[in-house]
Simulated scan of single mutants.
Amino acid sequence: MSENELSAVEAELYDRQIRLWGIESQERLRAANVLLIGVRGLGSEIAKNILLTGVNSLVILDDGIVTEEEQNKNFLLNRGSEGKKIAEEVLIKAQALNPLVKLSADTSAPAEKEAFFFESFTIIVATGIKTDLLFKIDRICRANKIKLIAGDVFGSFGYSVNDFQDHHYIADQPKLLGKKRGHDSKETKAEREILKVKGEIKYPELYKVIILPNKKQNADCIKKSKRRNEYLFLMLILLEFRNRQNRDPRVSNLDKDLKLLQEIKIEVLDLYQADHLKLSDQVFELVFGEVVPVCAVLGGIIAQEVIKAVSQREIPVNNVFLFDPVTYCGKEETVA
């Protein structure tokens, strides 16, 4: 049996998945090595779902320390973990989800990692990092044909961005066959046939998708787009806030953070030549902390995109997913 082939134990454990997307797709997952940057509220949900799919290995990269607040929103942490390294503290519960996956923790700062560290992975999922580092990782991924997903939860708002480069996939497409007339002249019901359809999506580099004020990026293409989803602007505002403050908005700093968010909003909407009424200031009251149910929803969606990217089955998001903090609906936006 080759290294990538499933053992009898794995075939039994992943039986439902194999029935759903086939043995070849499961073997691709079995061979995948995944890096997860950040294992906070959202990251813990992503880790859980990725482990259950049966990848070969999962490395958790997070230099953070466990706080009381983190314990309240991260189900992978045990009580009494305050002050310890969060990447190490999640390992016991995470490994119990699937003992067959090689699971390890790295407590280094993501920004201090050399390029060669990222080159050994099949796919990288990044949460909680600034855009300069994200663009750096994206360049490394493109040079080494590694898939990349970035995502975050801010309060009840969440987003993800895919860069799968030149991605080929096979999707199931139902087709209804025509009704047939029998010997007794009675028509039979139309039959349903599932066709395997091949497709391809070419993803742009992330620096062409996440274009922010005061950056040396070509914004000509975005100025031609007048009908962008308002929550794409919210994503950009929050990422720019993180870039400037080196943190996410905090309830303990509510008034000052709201004021800064409003100032960044003006800069972003001016850059995109969008109406300032496009995004209400009231939505900023919904972007503090990490709402656990939103982490669960977005964590499932991002893990699903990991499965699509690795297994090459079904159509992935092209290329931005936005979770509406008001209606709790998901919307797909194609940028660049």
Rank of each mutant, 00 (worst) to 15 (best):
A115Q: 12
A115V: 13
A115W: 01
A115N: 11
F116Y: 08
F116T: 13
F116C: 06
F117M: 03
F117E: 00
F118V: 09
F118K: 07
F118A: 10
E119R: 13
E119K: 15
S120N: 11
S120R: 14
F121I: 08
F121N: 10
T122M: 02
T122D: 13
T122K: 07
T122I: 05
I124W: 08
I124Y: 06
V125C: 12
V125L: 14
V125I: 15
V125E: 03
V125F: 02
A126D: 14
T127S: 06
T127N: 09
T127Y: 01
T127D: 03
T127P: 04
G128I: 00
G128W: 02
G128K: 06
I129A: 04
I129V: 15
K130E: 13
L133K: 03
L133I: 07
L134Q: 11
L134V: 04
F135I: 01
F135L: 10
F135G: 02
K136P: 00
K136S: 12
I137F: 01
I137L: 07
I137K: 05
D138R: 02
D138P: 03
D138G: 10
D138I: 09
R139A: 14
R139W: 00
C141T: 06
C141K: 02
C141D: 08
C141P: 02
R142V: 03
R142K: 13
R142W: 07
A143I: 10
A143Q: 13
N144V: 02
N144R: 02
N144W: 12
N144E: 09
K145D: 14
K145L: 10
K145T: 14
I146Y: 12
I146V: 11
K147M: 13
K147A: 14
K147V: 11
L148G: 10
A150F: 14
A150Q: 11
A150K: 14
A150M: 09
A150N: 12
A150W: 12
G151T: 01
D152M: 06
D152N: 15
V153P: 04
V153E: 03
V153S: 02
F154N: 11
F154S: 07
F154P: 01
F154M: 02
F154W: 09
G155N: 07
S156W: 12
S156G: 10
S156D: 08
S156R: 15
F157D: 07
G158H: 08
G158E: 00
G158R: 05
G158S: 15
Y159R: 03
Y159W: 11
Y159E: 13
Y159N: 05
Y159D: 02
